[in-house]
Amino acid sequence: MNIDKIMTDGLSFSLPLFIMAIGGIYSERSGVTMLSIEGFQGFGAFTGAITVVILRTAMGSSPNWLIYVATLASVLGGMLLALLNALMVIKLKSKMTIAGVVVNILAVALTSFLSSVITGAVTGQATNKIQLGVSPRYTIPYLSEIPVIGGLFQNIYPFAFIIIVVALLAWYVLYKTSYGLRLRAGGDNPHSLDAAGVDVNKIRFSAVVLAGGFAGLGGIAFTYMMANFSPSSYVGYGYLAIAALIFGNWNIRTTFWTSMFFGFSRSFSDQLVNELGMSSNYSDLFSVMPYVLTLIVLIFFSKHNRPPRALGEHFDKGKR
């Protein structure tokens, strides 16, 4: 069994999942039920991919730094869609779960529509697949030689470094700054926050938009792993991230471990199919693994979970 491959693939899958789950944590800790990570992720990735295609066509070459422009565009794209979600939930007071699904449906519809329109206009081909270049990958010397866990340091995507830095920052902001305290109060006791003179809706608004940015970062990382973006890129990782954060009890540190659990169980089952030399039909059967695991894990852990107390409630100043 190829342990290095399991390690490498597991890490490159779990880190984007982790950053998306952090987005969910930000939003849910502020009191806004978050189901639209999937949509932010896809829309962000689409924005990043389309930026690459347009810049590549304009310049006629594809330098290495394009990947960082794509990342930035993806983060902004995710935030843009999150803005819509925040507007619906906070200003228009639509139900949070329904708003989440609306945003997901809109994301899928808009990206498939726009990618057929734009790729048609830019490349002249009737396809909705946006081809991206191959991302560079790095191997850390010495560390990658360690047996068993050496795979963690081989063929790392540049996103891994970005995600780790952003995740550390996100952890610091949420737990060590006054903004983070206010954000968490927004989800647990918005009225005390209001009494302290803080605008609850503003805090929630910013949390949802940040969630969009985190999801966009995760989205572009997933997209570069598949080397192209198409509307069929929506495969439910956003929901997997939600499961990871519930399993992680709305806490960034625990969610790190749950994301790792999902990532490595996935790469393990992929390797298992390879190793046993089964036909490709069976890979469908094994693809079920993360989803079944999610359900089983939730069965055991949901009961003891403590979601933010005011999660899913619109802030109503006059409520007693």
């Binding site: 439910g236 079920v288 989803y291 069965i299």
Partner: peptide
């Protein structure tokens, strides 16, 4: 699952969606 284990119905139904689509794909293809 919602009643007994307090799992949000949205998460369960989405997980079941993927499970059903992969498992039926396996049987259809095979």
């Amino acid at each position: 699952l919602k009643h007994r284990f307090n799992i949000h119905e949205v998460v369960t139904s989405i997980m079941l969606n993927y499970i059903v689509s992969y498992v039926t794909a396996f049987f259809i293809n095979t």
